[in-house]
Structure formats: structure tokens, C-alpha cells
Write a protein that binds this DNA or RNA. Structure first.
Lengths: 138, 138
DNA sequence: TTCCGTGCAAACGCTTTGCACGCAT
DNA sequence: ATGCGTGCAAAGCGTTTGCACGGAA
């Protein structure tokens, strides 16, 4: 995604365009897997740019509000991970090597109606993580 | 579950029986919803018993190892929640009032074979959280 | 008696916040 | 020119850990 397009996306969401926000967004789209705040921080430094960790947290919080990204907490280490919400995907985590794969299938949608009927809730979203062993680790 | 049975369960898992472990287990079975460590702590105090928070964390970690309980991290507040693993259930969280309902339906099982074929992973478990608005909050 | 479990307090690490400065608008 | 975004440092807060004591086996 070009800088221009990112700028437009930000404008559409009412966000000011800054180099930090642009680069955080860029990093997340070039590394389409769940990243922790400090992973993003180090990837940022690798681009020969400096940034404050707290700025990253603030940007991530902002992106969350605008639903540009998703926050996930992998159970292992209590660290939060963030991913761009390009479409709807789920994570498949290898319990041994921690490798993460994405799954396009989403069984949940088909059942949302049933669950709404059963619970009277209005379902607006869901989070699904799958665990298992990857081919190499089996 | 009677104290005796809990004792047997602990023995089966190779755990010493202590009043703290017994009461933590008791509290979790009497409040079958995701509890944070400090919720358990306060429920413990309500029983006119005192305990250290760190003991609770150690007990929870132990129960996790033995797979007596499950750990979930609700995205809101970075706090971990714990539930007994009586059978397989999922959470339905109201985004407005934070009330939590349990859902018996689990659409995921039916798709595990498909996902295994598509990914070559051996799927061993999953975590599903649903979000929405409860009847009162809609 | 032995060793594990617990309580207490301090440490830890991720995340958040207050404040002053600088940049986008 | 104005107000929002950022950097820095410090605070916050859930969780973990070290150590000495007490209780389970």
C-alpha cells in the first residue's frame, strides 16, 4: 500500500498523517502476522528510524479504535499481539514451535444465527484461535 | 464436588491436598465463569479465609499444568481469566456491559477435519470468544 | 522428618500516563 | 496559529519470584 493510499485511509478515519503512523502501518502490512508492540518497535528501528515505544502503544490503540487492526492475547506470555484486519482470518498456532499459520476458513459465521437465537445476543464479532502441531513438529 | 472427591482428584494428578487448593477449586466450581485471579482472591476472603494472591497465582498455574482449568485473556483489560474445564464451552461477551454468557454450541469441531486437510496441522484445541450485545444492551 | 506449599514483600515486565516540545492542519 | 502527536521518564498494575516458615505426607 502506497503512502498516498495510507494517507487517504487515515483521512477517511479522521486520523492525522504522521511518519510514525505511516511506518507502523507499513510494518504491519509487510509483516502480516501477529506482532507484539516491541516487535514492531524493533522492526521500526531496523528501518533506521527511531520511535518511542509509548508512541507505538498509542498508535496501536488508535488503530484499534478505528478497527484498522485486531488485538489478540496469546495465552503463553501475556503479551498482546496486533494484526491488520485485512479481511477476516483466524490463527493456527503450533504448540511446539509457536509458528503461526492463518486459516481462511471460518466456521463461526454459519452458526451465528443459531447462537443469536439461543442467547438473544446480537453477535457482532468473534475471535478464534486454533492450536495444534504443524507438519514439522508432529 | 465434595472435599473428598477433590482430594482424590488432586491425588490422581499428584498434587498435595491443602486447604488453599481445595478452596480455590471449590470457588471455581461454584462460580462457573471466567474469573480473574483477584476475583478468586476476593471470593476467597468472603469465605472468611485469608490467602495470599501469589498463592492463588501459583495454584492457578498448577491447575493449568494439570489441565484442570483453562486460561483465557479477555482483550479488554489485559487480565487473565480462569475457568474449570468441565466439558467444552465458549464465551459470549457483551461489549457494552461486559456480561459473560456461555455458549454450548461449538461450530469449530465440525470444521477441524477440513482445516487439518487444508493446513496439514494436527489440531488439538481451540479458543473461541464471541462478542456482541446482550438483550438488555441492544 | 522431609520436602513441598504458603505468605510476605520486593522485583519484573508490559503497558499507560503527565508534561513539554514539535509538527500536521 | 492551534491543537494534536510524540518522546521521555516515571508511574501503574497484573503477575512472578526469593526467602523463611509451617504444614502435608
Amino acid at each position: 500500500m502506497k503512502s498516498n493510499e495510507v494517507k487517504q485511509l487515515f483521512q477517511k478515519e479522521g486520523l492525522r498523517f504522521t511518519s510514525q503512523r505511516n511506518l507502523v502501518f507499513d510494518i504491519m502490512s509487510k509483516h502480516p502476522r501477529p506482532l507484539t508492540a516491541d516487535e514492531i518497535y524493533f522492526l521500526y528501528l531496523e528501518q533506521d528510524e527511531s520511535i518511542s515505544l509509548s508512541t507505538i502503544y498509542r498508535i496501536l490503540e488508535l488503530f484499534l479504535e478505528k478497527e484498522i487492526i485486531t488485538k489478540t492475547l496469546l495465552t503463553d506470555n501475556n503479551k498482546a499481539c496486533y494484526v491488520l484486519r485485512h479481511g477476516h482470518k483466524h490463527l493456527l498456532v503450533c504448540l511446539n514451535c509457536k509458528k503461526i499459520t492463518e486459516v481462511k476458513e471460518c466456521p463461526v459465521h454459519y452458526f451465528e444465527d443459531d447462537i443469536q437465537n439461543a442467547t438473544q445476543f446480537k453477535i457482532t464479532g468473534h475471535k478464534l484461535e486454533l492450536y495444534g502441531l504443524c507438519p514439522e513438529c508432529q
